[in-house]
Design a protein around this nucleic acid. Structure first.
Lengths: 201, 201, 201, 201
DNA sequence: GGGTAACCGAGACGGTACGTCTAGTCTTTAA
DNA sequence: TTAAAGACTAGACGTACCGTCTCGGTTACCC
């Protein structure tokens, strides 16, 4: 009953409802085009054409290209696989770093690097990249580190923010500066070694 | 050998010689425009207009926008200040990191982040950014680290490439992900602490 | 005959009846917008918005913009003032021409010129303009001329259609080609002189 | 010699000169498209596509669609046939009216009616239509009438401007109001009779 | 008084064209 | 040969409307 009331209060949905079909077509077209083009080369016009959709429909629901690409990225199959429960905070951080590297290793890595690039110039893109990708990632790691500090797993030499930078920075740097070296060997060795640096301190 | 030199000096300078005046006007205009615009917003057209130069003149001497901006960046006054001689390799690395952060802290930091961004999409830009900025930086640090390893200052847990990433990655990550925190406090504390991480191992 | 009338009166109008309120709002909004815009600049969307009405409601009752504007024009107050009874056919024609010029001299003149323009391109608009405005006007004048011919007031040099063109053409031409000269002096002098041309023949 | 000087003074043509090829392609494409579309339906985009020309090239040389169409119209073959020398002013006017009707009878008549329509709403189009088409036409007739008045061929009942309206108005009115009647019979009979009206007064 | 039918507002939909911008190339004259 | 000027083709940008559609809701008449 309270549910019904809430529903009524929240949504008096006037007008024709948003077409899920179009939404999916847009995201699908975006992912498809990203296989052969960079985010910067991608045009709203091309997405609209490929998705057989009016440009206005895209502009109606996303503020800019970054938002569309971000959405397309997130809505990919197998993007939301949850982590297994870690035994301690050290392991939690390691698992998070491994997951990050795994994510960045696929084709997605390129796209994310390009979104990161977009974010450098365009403030609106920055906000979207921050909110949809960077913050969740950083917050999760920071949370584990904070708990690890409290529980004595990690030292207090660095503040949490800097630790996150020390752990994640090299990953993004390698991704963007010399992607060829962003390989399986890196994925396997980096997380454990990096975290051990922090533990030791 | 003297031949080559002679050739250059004597060579019959057919046609109109390259105008140094135009070159300087272009670089100056670029720097001037970068004060108010991002690299991405900057257009060759705008540079040509501001420098009172034909677009062709720009295209003749630089392959793309990144190259022009890179050149403009390097040719700024006070860009080439040499480091004092360090007492040991640890100090050398610290000084190099400090210099890097100092460089990235000014308005130039933004521009370099944007060039880094350009490099993500455009292979030719990548090459230029790599050759003109990234490689010299990385090679210098790698050299000090290698010597430090040989002289027992640093351990062998990580290969040199990874150490460079661990030292530089956080700097670039902080620059690009949350520029507001790229402040004096960071400049003062980060290099020593980061290098101490490596030493300890 | 009575059948047709009956049919209309008795006919079972299933469903919700047309909203007079909406109809009036649409015509009012149209007239209001025409004060500041031309017919060509006017958009169905703007009318719907101003009248707080769905676009569909407009499209349901009028086939196109011309039809709405025509309706809005006709339904203006003081649009249907009848002429006083003339003493003879000559006077009748003069009075009709005077009325026409008076009508075209107000803001309506512009609108009618614009509807005439619409009619040039769009066949459906042409039909509406013809049926709602041009034919009634022309037929009335033609009727007076025909009777004037029969009663010896006018000669037979020209066929009636051409006489109507000779009388009305200059009025529309002046309206459309050089509206600034479509002034009071023209209104006062033209009708009598023009008709005298015809009489003399 | 003075020629050369003049040439130098008038035209220091810097930069790449306008491409005659493109200009012709644009005008040709416009004429071609007008065979199947009205001026209003015609789009700059379609012209550019058909002429294999950048849109900018069109916008660079013509302020709007009306200007392009006007130019295309004028540059048609056989558009500039001069009139034979008339024996007197009456005949001059008749020949001018005949020429006008002939011009309006072809496909061009429709186009001109549509340009006239454009001119109703758009002030810039009005100016172009006025300067390129209407004024030359009216001025020529007005000139003959004025001379005819001076030489006693025409009376002074109407001022010249009104006479022009009386002669030309019916032609345009018939063209725009009921084009089907704008036929050969009209062409043959109207000019002489219309002018005789004026003469008689 | 419940069923049915046409109406209503709101607003999303696929499209088309707009006029502007920039890219990178081409074509001219002058130095 | 290079410089400058500026034209060239090409195509994306974000906006405005088009005419259609799809909702939830609202009158009316009908049985």
């Amino acid at each position: 009953m309270s549910n019904a009331v809430l529903k009524e209060e929240i949504s008096p949905p006037k007008g024709r409802p948003r077409s899920e079909k179009s939404k999916n077509a847009i995201l699908k077209a975006t992912n498809s085009l990203l296989l052969h083009k960079s985010v910067q080369e991608l045009s709203i016009e091309a997405i609209a054409k490929k998705a057989k959709v009016g440009k206005t429909t895209i502009y109606r629901w996303w503020p800019n290209k970054t938002a569309v690409v971000m959405d397309a990225l997130i809505n990919q199959p197998g993007m939301q696989t949850p982590l297994p429960t870690p035994r301690n905070n050290t392991e939690a951080v390691i698992m998070q770093l491994e997951k990050l590297i795994r994510l960045l290793q696929s084709k997605n890595g390129e796209v994310i690097a390009q979104l990161f690039s977009e974010a450098q110039t365009n403030p609106e893109s920055h906000k979207i990249f921050e909110n949809s990708f960077l913050s969740p990632l950083i917050d999760a790691i920071a949370f584990s580190i904070d708990r690890g500090k409290a529980e004595g797993e990690f030292g207090n030499t660095f503040d949490t923010k800097t630790i996150v930078d020390i752990l994640c920075g090299p990953i993004f740097f390698r991704l963007m500066a010399h992607r060829p070296d962003f390989d399986d060997a890196f994925q396997e060795s980096y997380p454990r070694k990096a975290v051990s640096l922090i533990r030791a301190n």
